[in-house]
């Protein structure tokens, strides 16, 4: 039992039997060096992932700067016309759009969004969800598979384009589920070390038409509003995608940096153990030789 605890570094039991002679008390040199090599490889991988996401982040941030006024602009109308979600009744149908991506290893980006949505779903199970990116689907599927209407995949490999957003907006508009209002949940990028979960409003034609301040707007017919809503949904989705992509890359950068640091610590510890073991092996062999010689004389 003691032996097994001491040699827990060993990968397989078969190996343990084969070299049982050597391992008394301490892990063998070979297993330690194997482990050391694998940790070094992992560190190389996390380091290069960090470099890649740093480059992608620089680009995403540049593009986000261009997209910010665009997103702010598309939000203005809903704020200034004071469009609000209708009171909750039997007929209100809410739609949430979760902006995540297909790629993981980026901290709490996806789980944060899903946690938020899950809290709302627990309170009101009639809310339907559209998952953008496989990660949010994987998280929400376990408990709320029935609430997921649609999943958009292939998100996050390339930088988001307006065309992606308009395709998604088109699908949302053609849904059989006639939502009355909803939210786009996304990660708002603040700085390299910080992001927060934010939402953008989505409304149906009916909700906009019943807004109290809509009367001050001149020469509107429902056609114009419908077209306007479609385009503004696309531009808000585009903006949310850009924000999400930038936050994701920056978060992946931090996560990979931390992983490399942890791997570095592990390498230090393993190297120390490796050297100590080697020293012990040498000492033991010396003792064997000397005591052998002493017994002979």
């Amino acid at each position: 039992m003691m032996q097994r605890a001491a040699t827990s570094i060993l990968p397989t039991a078969g190996n343990m039997l084969a070299s049982a002679q050597q391992q008394r008390g301490m892990a063998t040199l070979k297993t330690i060096s194997m482990r050391l090599k694998s940790v070094k490889n992992i560190q190389k991988i996390t380091q290069s992932m960090k470099m890649v996401s740093a480059a992608k982040y620089a680009r995403a941030e540049r593009e986000l700067k261009q997209a910010r006024p665009y997103g702010e602009g598309s939000k203005q109308f809903y704020e200034k016309a004071e469009v609000v979600a209708p009171e909750k009744t039997e007929e209100t149908k809410k739609l949430y759009i979760a902006m995540s991506s297909d790629r993981g290893l980026c901290g709490a980006i996806h789980s944060g969004i899903c946690r938020h949505i899950r809290a709302d779903l627990a309170a009101d199970s009639s809310i339907k969800v559209i998952c953008v990116g496989d990660k949010s689907r994987a998280i929400l599927q376990r408990l709320y598979a029935k609430n997921i209407l649609m999943v958009a995949s292939e998100v996050g490999r390339l930088a988001p384009q307006f065309l992606d957003a308009s395709k998604l907006a088109n699908e949302v508009m053609n849904l059989e589920y006639e939502f009355t209002d909803g939210k786009i949940m996304y990660n708002r990028f603040k700085s390299v070390v910080s992001y927060s979960i934010s939402d953008l409003p989505v409304f149906s034609l009916k909700s906009v038409e019943s807004a109290p301040k809509l009367a001050v707007y001149d020469s509107l017919d429902s056609d114009v509003i419908q077209n306007y809503l479609e385009f503004s949904l696309a531009s808000m989705l585009f903006f949310a995608m850009k924000e999400g992509a930038c936050a994701e890359q920056s978060s992946r950068m931090t996560a990979m940096d931390n992983a490399s640091k942890n791997a570095g610590e592990m390498i230090d510890k393993l190297t120390l153990t490796f050297n100590r073991t080697r020293q012990a092996v040498i000492t033991r062999e010396l003792i064997e030789i000397i005591s052998g010689a002493a017994a002979l004389s």
């Binding site: 665009y70 602009g73 598309s74 203005q76 109308f77 200034k80 016309a81 307006f162 308009s166 301040k213 001050v216 077209n227 306007y228 385009f231 503004s232 531009s235």
Partner: peptide, 16 residues
């Protein structure tokens, strides 16, 4: 794209 003129004289022209 869209044109929005709001009550507070703010104008947004958003183009594809």
């Amino acid at each position: 794209g869209t044109v929005t003129v709001n009550e507070d004289s703010s104008v947004q022209v958003l183009a594809e």
